[in-house]
């Protein structure tokens, strides 16, 4: 384990472009010049609308996607250079859990296969009893009864159950960085709190977490640093309390006004804010990212983009 505030993950001006269209003739710039770092024991939340490139960033860190331009550096080593045994060691340190739990399971095998595969890969030395104790402990940590979930096929389990099994699996390894892509969007309020508190405890023991979410109150609850992404660009980045307490970019403000709250209706939020927030890109064309944005420091530990949206802070 590295020291308290030493650097662990460093994402340096990363870009990703996808080939799109029927013959792959088009190009979609999904991520543009994104830079940030994650230290041990730090939770960085990545917030942005659907299609803004959040999962793409997560997948590049997990080497499930190639970086088009830029570097991802872990413990000082560019991860694109890792191969064979080094890559296996990398995955013993860095794991991801993805947003759609069903896609992580093969429907023709029982859901526990994700554990069996982990066992043969990393814990083949463990006795059956020890393995079982370890498995039950990790299921317990995500509030699952082993009897309810083991031995079943993916379609026999609810979305939230599948999701928690994946979290349990990632945490069985003594990892140092977790890429958590919308892992709690399928969970109810009470289970969410349990999982969040579990992440909080692991964080205090030094786990770094990239917490991808669309839920601002959860991001605010758990993270030290917040990064707001829009159309592949970082529009605001900084200490969580500054980004939430003093949002500078209009897009960040729009997001804050859209958070569903228990005691205030959206219409009332609009009245206090002045104008209804612009709808997310859900309604319009998917816009290709244009030139990348420049971040300026608006106050210590707080950066925001000056862009063409009339967004001067």
């Amino acid at each position: 384990m590295l020291e308290g505030d030493s650097l662990m993950l460093n994402v340096e001006t990363c870009c990703k472009s996808y080939r799109v269209g029927a013959f792959g003739g088009g190009e979609l710039l999904a991520v543009q010049n994104v830079s940030f770092d994650v230290h041990p024991g730090e939770v960085v939340s990545l917030i942005g609308e659907s299609g803004s490139g959040k999962s793409t960033i997560g997948k590049m860190i997990l080497r499930l996607l190639k970086v088009t331009r830029g570097n991802i550096v872990f413990d000082g080593v560019d991860i694109s250079t890792l191969g064979g045994r080094e890559l296996k060691a990398y995955y013993a340190d860095v794991q991801g859990v993805f947003q759609d739990p069903f896609s992580s399971y093969n429907p023709i095998f029982k859901a526990d296969r994700v554990f069996t595969m982990l066992r043969s890969e990393y814990f083949s030395g463990l006795s059956a009893t020890d393995w079982h104790a370890k498995l039950e402990k990790s299921l317990d940590a995500v509030s699952l009864n082993p009897g309810d979930v083991l031995g079943k096929y993916p379609h026999q389990l609810s979305g939230g159950q599948l999701q928690r099994m994946l979290i349990a699996r990632a945490l069985m390894l003594d990892i140092r960085l977790l890429v958590a892509d919308e892992i709690i969007s399928m969970l109810d309020a009470s289970t969410r709190i349990d999982v969040l508190n579990l992440l909080g405890d692991l964080k205090s023991r030094g786990l770094g977490i990239l917490f991808i979410t669309h839920d601002l109150s959860l991001g605010n609850y758990i993270s030290d640093k917040t990064m707001i992404l829009r159309r592949g660009n970082v529009v605001e980045l900084g200490a969580t309390e500054l980004v939430f307490g003093n949002p500078v970019h209009p897009y960040t403000k729009t997001l804050l006004a859209s958070v569903p709250q228990l005691h205030t209706k959206w219409q009332d939020v609009d009245v206090t804010i002045g104008a209804p927030p612009a709808p997310g890109n859900g309604g319009g064309q998917l816009v290709l990212a244009e030139g990348s944005l420049e971040l300026v420091e608006v106050e210590p530990s707080h950066f925001a983009a000056l862009d063409g949206d009339g967004a001067a802070p």
Partner: peptide
């Protein structure tokens, strides 16, 4: 009542106020 009170409002932070979910877990439906 417990479900409603386990919802985080914007502004609550883990470091300052640890929310608690509903202790225990739902029974097996078997």
């Amino acid at each position: 009542r417990m479900l409603i009170s386990s919802l985080p409002e914007v502004g609550v932070r883990y470091a300052e106020k640890r929310l608690i979910g509903i202790p225990g877990r739902p029974p097996s439906l078997l």
